[in-house]
Measured scan of single mutants.
Amino acid sequence: KELVLVLYDYQEKSPREVTVKKGDILTLLNSTNKDWWKVEVDDSQGFIPAAYLKKL
């Protein structure tokens, strides 16, 4: 599985998104959309702007 590093805090703005903190390491589930990547946070899944993430 691929991991990503969160570069900036992000507060979810819709139920399909997730809240993350700078420095979090998350599992990347889908990066086919260049603007929004799907990640797994704890036991939930959701989208975060790709610009907030860096592949490890």
Results as ranks from 00 to 15, higher is better:
residue 15 P to F: 07
residue 4 V to Q: 00
residue 3 L to F: 14
residue 53 L to K: 01
residue 26 L to P: 00
residue 5 L to F: 07
residue 39 V to F: 03
residue 40 E to S: 10
residue 5 L to H: 03
residue 30 N to S: 13
residue 24 D to L: 09
residue 37 W to S: 01
residue 27 T to W: 13
residue 31 S to N: 07
residue 36 W to Y: 09
residue 35 D to A: 12
residue 7 L to I: 08
residue 46 G to S: 08
residue 2 E to V: 14
residue 43 D to F: 10
residue 56 L to N: 01
residue 38 K to D: 02
residue 15 P to V: 08
residue 12 E to R: 15
residue 51 A to H: 12
residue 3 L to E: 06
residue 38 K to Y: 15
residue 19 T to F: 07
residue 18 V to I: 14
residue 19 T to D: 05
residue 6 V to K: 01
residue 21 K to Y: 11
residue 12 E to L: 15
residue 43 D to Y: 09
residue 40 E to D: 06
residue 20 V to T: 04
residue 55 K to S: 06
residue 56 L to Q: 04
residue 2 E to F: 12
residue 33 N to F: 07
residue 4 V to W: 05
residue 2 E to N: 11
residue 50 A to E: 03
residue 40 E to W: 08
residue 18 V to P: 02
residue 25 I to C: 05
residue 12 E to K: 15
residue 3 L to D: 02
residue 45 Q to H: 11
residue 52 Y to F: 12
residue 4 V to L: 03
residue 19 T to Q: 06
residue 50 A to L: 03
residue 50 A to D: 01
residue 49 P to I: 05
residue 55 K to T: 06
residue 15 P to H: 10
residue 53 L to F: 02
residue 13 K to R: 13
residue 4 V to R: 01
residue 17 E to T: 10
residue 5 L to Y: 09
residue 25 I to Q: 03
residue 35 D to V: 14
residue 17 E to A: 10
residue 33 N to D: 14
residue 11 Q to R: 11
residue 26 L to A: 07
residue 29 L to Y: 04
residue 21 K to H: 10
residue 20 V to S: 02
residue 5 L to R: 07
residue 54 K to H: 10
residue 12 E to A: 15
residue 53 L to E: 00
residue 40 E to P: 01
residue 13 K to A: 10
residue 48 I to G: 02
residue 49 P to W: 05
residue 50 A to F: 03
residue 23 G to K: 01
residue 6 V to G: 00
residue 8 Y to H: 13
residue 2 E to G: 11
residue 46 G to N: 05
residue 31 S to I: 05
residue 28 L to T: 02
residue 8 Y to I: 08
residue 52 Y to L: 10
residue 39 V to N: 00
residue 39 V to Q: 01
residue 41 V to R: 11
residue 51 A to T: 12
residue 44 S to I: 15
residue 19 T to M: 07
residue 43 D to G: 15
residue 37 W to G: 00
residue 37 W to M: 02
residue 49 P to Y: 05
residue 9 D to N: 08
residue 31 S to Y: 07
residue 21 K to P: 01
residue 42 D to S: 11
residue 55 K to F: 08
residue 29 L to K: 04
residue 37 W to A: 02
residue 18 V to K: 06
residue 19 T to K: 08
residue 45 Q to F: 13
residue 10 Y to M: 02
residue 50 A to V: 06
residue 25 I to Y: 04
residue 36 W to I: 05
residue 40 E to T: 07
residue 9 D to P: 05
residue 26 L to N: 00
residue 43 D to A: 11
residue 32 T to D: 14
residue 23 G to W: 06
residue 52 Y to R: 04
residue 19 T to W: 06
residue 8 Y to P: 00
residue 30 N to Y: 06
residue 9 D to Q: 04
residue 24 D to G: 05
residue 37 W to Q: 00
residue 11 Q to G: 07
residue 9 D to Y: 04
residue 54 K to I: 12
residue 34 K to Q: 11
residue 28 L to E: 00
residue 19 T to V: 06
residue 52 Y to H: 08
residue 52 Y to A: 09
residue 53 L to P: 00
residue 49 P to T: 03
residue 39 V to M: 01
residue 29 L to H: 03
residue 21 K to E: 04
residue 6 V to S: 02
residue 44 S to P: 01
residue 4 V to D: 00
residue 19 T to Y: 07
residue 35 D to W: 15
residue 13 K to Q: 13
residue 25 I to V: 11
residue 32 T to C: 14
residue 22 K to F: 05
residue 9 D to F: 04
residue 25 I to R: 04
residue 1 K to G: 09
residue 29 L to R: 03
residue 49 P to L: 06
residue 34 K to V: 10
residue 5 L to V: 11
residue 39 V to W: 02
residue 19 T to I: 05
residue 43 D to N: 14
residue 27 T to S: 08
residue 11 Q to Y: 14
residue 39 V to I: 08
residue 55 K to H: 07
residue 47 F to Q: 04
residue 54 K to P: 01
residue 25 I to F: 04
residue 48 I to E: 01
residue 41 V to T: 15
residue 20 V to C: 07
residue 55 K to E: 05
residue 25 I to T: 05
residue 14 S to Y: 10
residue 17 E to D: 06
residue 14 S to G: 13
residue 23 G to N: 05
residue 31 S to E: 11
residue 17 E to P: 09
residue 56 L to V: 09
residue 16 R to C: 15
residue 35 D to M: 14
residue 8 Y to C: 15
residue 3 L to H: 08
residue 3 L to G: 02
residue 51 A to C: 15
residue 20 V to W: 05
residue 29 L to F: 04
residue 23 G to A: 02
residue 38 K to W: 13
residue 37 W to V: 02
residue 17 E to C: 09
residue 22 K to E: 06
residue 7 L to S: 02
residue 49 P to F: 06
residue 16 R to D: 11
residue 43 D to R: 10
residue 56 L to W: 07
residue 48 I to S: 02
residue 53 L to W: 02
residue 7 L to H: 01
residue 28 L to N: 00
residue 27 T to E: 06
residue 23 G to V: 02
residue 6 V to C: 06
residue 45 Q to R: 10
residue 44 S to N: 13
residue 7 L to K: 05
residue 54 K to G: 04
residue 36 W to T: 03
residue 46 G to V: 15
residue 31 S to W: 10
residue 37 W to H: 02
residue 32 T to E: 14
residue 32 T to L: 08
residue 28 L to G: 00
residue 40 E to R: 12
residue 49 P to N: 04
residue 26 L to I: 12
residue 24 D to Q: 15
residue 21 K to M: 08
residue 46 G to Q: 10
residue 13 K to C: 11
residue 2 E to H: 11
residue 15 P to G: 11
residue 16 R to P: 06
residue 36 W to C: 09
residue 55 K to Y: 08
residue 10 Y to L: 02
residue 32 T to V: 10
residue 26 L to H: 05
residue 19 T to G: 05
residue 46 G to L: 15
residue 46 G to K: 08
residue 13 K to V: 08
residue 42 D to N: 14
residue 27 T to D: 03
residue 26 L to G: 08
residue 11 Q to D: 12
residue 13 K to G: 08
residue 12 E to F: 15
residue 34 K to D: 11
residue 50 A to M: 05
residue 47 F to C: 14
residue 28 L to P: 00
residue 41 V to F: 12
residue 27 T to R: 14
residue 44 S to E: 12
residue 14 S to L: 08
residue 55 K to I: 12
residue 36 W to K: 03
residue 17 E to F: 09
residue 35 D to I: 14
residue 14 S to N: 12
residue 34 K to A: 13
residue 3 L to A: 05
residue 23 G to I: 02
residue 18 V to Q: 04
residue 33 N to L: 08
residue 41 V to P: 01
residue 45 Q to D: 09
residue 10 Y to W: 08
residue 14 S to Q: 08
residue 35 D to Y: 15
residue 4 V to M: 02
residue 8 Y to D: 08
residue 38 K to L: 15
